[in-house]
């Protein structure tokens, strides 16, 4: 499994995690791979996207060797479309639900928990991204209370929540605050190798009640999706 080098047995139920990293550091790709694995393990996945339509995401995932289309057709992976409001709510074939106003975080909270309720325990809920929602949100205070409330609700529903947060897109204090309102953080970064190529790196910063490593792992592309290198990346 993807997370094996970091944490044995994967993410525990009832946890909410902030996935923080700069743009283009593999956050979405990482989430999609986790979603696929959740489905392969007999769970469901719910993916809220503010950055792309569900069809585009499925196409992107396919480009990385992560086959989601079949799972989406069987409703094993459900998408909530928080993007299409920009283009006048054209119906996306893969959208199970839609958010018409991402700035209304109460509505987003209700929609996500309503869909999450119907999923099996241990299912994965992904919000990609909190930063996208926050662009339309009226103030930072609402984002904080939204994240806290959603994390607690998903925890009560015995699901796993992953909140994608763009690094450098917010004040550092806000990001630290959001991280403090959930139960763990995963960080990603981009590093330039000696040959000038860029490498994606990822690490588990903290997670309550779990034994995990805190070292950086490189995200490597494989034929079928992505994997984490076992060893430490170069400094």
């Amino acid at each position: 499994m993807l997370l094996d080098p970091i944490i044995q047995g994967g993410l525990p139920q009832r946890t909410s995690i902030a996935l923080v990293g700069p743009p283009g550091s593999g956050k979405t790709c990482f989430c999609l791979q986790l979603a696929l694995e959740a489905v392969k393990n007999g769970k469901d996945a719910l993916f809220l996207s503010t950055e792309n339509t569900p069809s585009t995401i499925i196409a992107h995932a396919n480009g990385f060797g992560i086959p989601l289309a079949a799972k989406a057709e069987k409703n094993k992976i459900q998408f909530i479309d928080a993007y299409s409001w920009r283009i006048g709510m054209r119906k996306d074939p893969f959208a199970a639900g839609r958010v018409s106003n991402p700035g209304n975080l109460n509505e987003v909270n209700l929609i996500v928990t309503d869909y999450a309720k119907l999923l099996k325990p241990g299912s994965l809920i992904i919000l990609d991204s909190v930063s996208g929602l926050s662009l339309s949100a009226p103030d930072e205070q609402r984002i904080r209370t939204f994240v806290h409330s959603l994390a607690q609700r998903i925890s009560t529903l015995e699901k796993i929540l992953i909140l994608v947060i763009e690094d450098h897109a917010h004040d550092n204090k806000l990001i630290t605050n959001l991280r403090s309102l959930v139960q763990g953080s995963i960080h990603t970064k981009v590093e330039e190798g000696s040959d000038g190529s860029l490498h994606w790196n990822i690490r588990m910063y903290s997670l309550i009640g779990s034994q995990h490593t805190t070292q950086w792992h490189e995200i490597v592309l494989e034929k079928m999706g992505i994997a984490l290198s076992g060893g430490a990346s170069n400094k």
């Binding site: 009832r14 607690q152 925890s155 009560t156 403090s180 309102l181 139960q183 309550i208 009640g209």
Partner: peptide
Amino acid sequence: TLWSPIQVRDTMSQ
């Protein structure tokens, strides 16, 4: 205000 009582008791039992 952060961990549900279940999580607190889980961690405590460790």
